[in-house]
Amino acid sequence: MSLRNRVSLIGYTGKEVEIVNFENGGIKASVSLATNDHYTNAKGEKVEETQWHNLVAYGKTAEIMQKYLSKGREIAVEGKLTYRSYEDKEGVKRNITEIRVEELLLLGNK
């Protein structure tokens, strides 16, 4: 994996894994990941902030995600940022940022 475009995250899956099977036998897995950050604001109050990330994986990594991940599972991932755009049903152009998972580590007890 290139060091120029590398992302490492630890968080909790926010939904069940979505699977797409391709005609050529390939597989794609998608899931959301929540990461949390804590900080103290100017008033001295502790604030927790949650960020949501879209994860996608292909091949063996997708198969592992399908088999072992469920909503609420703690995982660590490494991958690269990817950007794509599409038109929604109303014809509006939408942009999406995803993390293409290349390494997956299952954490926690689930």
Rank of each mutant, 00 (worst) to 15 (best):
Y86A: 09
E48K: 06
I19M: 05
G11T: 05
N54L: 10
I19S: 04
I27E: 10
K15C: 07
Q66D: 00
G91W: 02
V56M: 03
T35R: 01
T13P: 09
N5K: 10
E18T: 03
I19K: 02
E18I: 05
L69S: 14
E16I: 00
E23L: 04
L69G: 12
I27H: 12
Y12Q: 13
N54S: 14
H38K: 07
T61M: 10
E87I: 01
L104N: 04
S32N: 14
E78V: 11
E48S: 03
V56C: 08
I19P: 01
L3K: 07
A62I: 11
S30Q: 12
G14V: 09
G59H: 12
R4N: 13
G91Y: 07
A76D: 07
Q51H: 04
F22C: 08
N41W: 01
N41G: 00
L107S: 01
L33D: 07
N41F: 00
A42G: 00
K67C: 01
G108L: 03
V56G: 07
V101D: 11
A42M: 02
K80Q: 14
G44A: 01
V20P: 04
G59S: 12
R73K: 14
K15N: 14
E78R: 15
L55Q: 04
N41S: 04
E90I: 08
K80F: 08
A57P: 02
L9G: 08
S8D: 08
L3G: 13
L33A: 11
V77R: 10
E90A: 15
S70P: 00
G26W: 01
H53T: 09
K28G: 10
R4T: 10
L105A: 13
A42W: 00
K110N: 01
E103G: 00
V31R: 12
N36V: 13
A57I: 06
K28P: 12
V101A: 14
Y68V: 03
T97L: 15
L106C: 14
